[in-house]
Design a protein around this nucleic acid. Sequence first.
DNA 1: ATAGGGTTAG
Length: 619
Amino acid sequence: MRPLKPHPIIQHFTQLVRMKDLPSAMNALSSLDNHGLRADPVAYADLVKLCIANRAVRQGRLVHLHIHADAVPPETFLDNNLLNMYVKFGLLDDARALFDAMPERNVVSWTTMVSAYARARASSEESVKLLNLMRRDGVAPNMFTYSSVLRAAVAAREPRMLGQIHCGAIKHGLESDVFVRSALIDAYAKSGDPGDGFRVFNEMETGDVFVWNSIIGGFAQNGRCDEALRLFVEMKRTGFRSSQATLTSALRACTGSARMEMGRQIHSHVVKFGSAAARDLILNNAVVDMYCKCGSTDEAGAAFARMRVRDVVSWSAMIAGLAQNGRSGDALELFELMRENGPRPNHVTMVGVLFACSHAGLVDEGRLYFDSMRTLFDVKPGREHYGCMVDLLGRAGRLNEALKLIEEMEIAPDGVIWRTLLGACKVHKNTSLAKRVAHRILELEPDDEGAYVLLSNTFAGARRWEGVEMVRGAMRDRGVKKRDPGCSWVEEEMRIHAFVAGDDSHPEMESIIGELNRLFSRIGDAGYVADAELALHDMEAEQREESMRYHSEKLAVAFAMTRAVAGKPIRVVKNLRTCGDCHAFAKMVSMVEGRDIVIRDAVRFHHFRGGACSCGDYW
DNA sequence: ATAGGGTTAG
């Protein structure tokens, strides 16, 4: 028997859906209803998709009613389409009601719900719960299910759950799916375990650009910048073309380790080859941030100016970058420009603004911005903003006001904010407040070496050596563990030269020491005197047993001097805060050698020029 | 047929 030709009304309906004419298709749908006709499931599915594309919630519900009105046997396929529609509309409860009412659920139905809960806020537990329920229901999860549920495992902050899901994926033979693999790598990275992700990566025989992006991004996010960049190079060598996400992650790795030369190469690659990449907002934001964090606000500003579209991230990165590099006036000017014709500032922007005020000692302006944040920009002051204010007041020597502000906070102060105040005590040599503040920090973080170090250095700065001894004794008694040794590095072409005090393994150490001695003798003539006693007691200065002549920053500066190119500043990065003697050293060298030196320490930048530092000797 | 993975600012 030949199939009957569909009824003209059905034909008309199908035609309108095909033409993506939603209003007319909806009219035709009610004709179908009136005549008790039913179209092909595919046409209904296409109509549902049309509703999704047009964000037509009301029409979507009507289609739902129509599909369910007939006495025709329900189709799981169509219900799945409706599920997807409700999910795309963000109507999770409607999706769940339909899901619960479905007479049959296949792997797509389950996966749609698992994925929906995995994406939604605060429902990751439900996502994982559904995965287990579907197994109990005898429906085997597939690669779609696993790649979705991994996101939920990250959000749930349950590393054990992540391992269990990983095991399940292996059991079902799905680990080699590129989607599952990249989701696994990313999930491990986001849970702070890029090493586990790397193991998954290494078992890979054939991958795609997403898998590479996951592992490169994973290392970059976790501060393992060298590994990220090594894989970035290897990816290109293997013949994969990098995408915007690859370049963004690679740039972030350059940002983390201050590898401006490498970052600049990636940037020029972006400009030269990728018209799409060159327009990519996120990528351009990463470029701006990279130049800022490498200490070149000029290049960051140029990249920022060339951007065709800028969002709140672009502006915030540039404002904070100027502020961190000691250009507070420019940062605040840019902020005023943003208020005039940029996006609305958010809480991150305001951190940059307050940081700029604190850096420039603009107490009144900072107060004003802080007090008006809520009314002007609808930003509630958070810990970071209070931190900036404590820094601002502390720098100005208004320690008691800073203490009062902390005590008035509506959120509980954390160790970071107390440490900021402790830093201010150190600069202003207020040992009695320092003792009280250190006590507060140790209540919160009993093993925090930073508190002991700062307190000890406060005593040392006030030349109260008995206090230094007392702190050291307390550290010994409590068995506080030592932190990472200080390390400074310099980027040259495409490689890094790293220095640790007392480590003379660099092949050019002889000429570096020669250069260092030459610098000492020149700045000595200019009046530099090492404060031997202070340096001896400075706990921030790594490996005190070594002479402070050989602190890692000094080695790095001397090395960079042997390679210096006329007109180019010397750039050094340090993993900890820079010590007072090295700071004085760099100031003097910048003066007698007539060369700019930029040191990025763990918290801020120091731009040395002509014997002065952009930080105003406060850090 | 319907469901899935990577990227930016403090």
